[in-house]
Amino acid sequence: MNINLTLFGQMVTFAFFVWFCMKFVWPVIIEAMEERQKKIADGLDAADRALRDLELAQNKATDQMKEAKQEAAGIIDQANKRANQIIDEAKQQAVAEGDRIKAAAQADIEQEINRAKEELRASVAGLALAGAEKVLEASIDEKSNRALVDKLAAQL
């Protein structure tokens, strides 16, 4: 238990080991640890950000889907309306066409009637005269009775 040179030997050794630790051990390890800490923190940050981004994207997707649905519903509505319109138009056209055809037919019929009437008139006069001629058995002046019979025929 004597105090001797060992004391200084230990002091020198101590100084040397502290220097070694200070130069080659501590900074290297601490630096690596701090860097890793930063890396981990960054990683966690990135994960958080990604999560937020995901949420945002999901919200956006939902919004877009809703919009698309609305748009689709709008388009369908419009299409329905358009279809109804087309049908209405077609109906109207059909009605108009029908009317037109009916009118044309009526006109034709009228014309035919008039023509038949004309023909009838023409032949009635002749027939009546021929009848009258037969009845009278005498020759009646065609010229003087013609006006009378025509007047009769016009009344038909």
Binding site: N4, T13, F24, A32
Partner: peptide, 30 residues
């Protein structure tokens, strides 16, 4: 006073070197 404890010094230096080696190895692999 003019004497030195060879065993104390040797063990203390040896253990100090062990410490340095262990931590230096780790520092290199950090």
């Amino acid at each position: 006073f003019m004497a030195i404890h060879v065993d104390s010094m040797a063990w203390s230096i040896g253990l100090g070197i062990l410490f340095c080696l262990l931590f230096r190895t780790a520092a290199k692999r950090a």
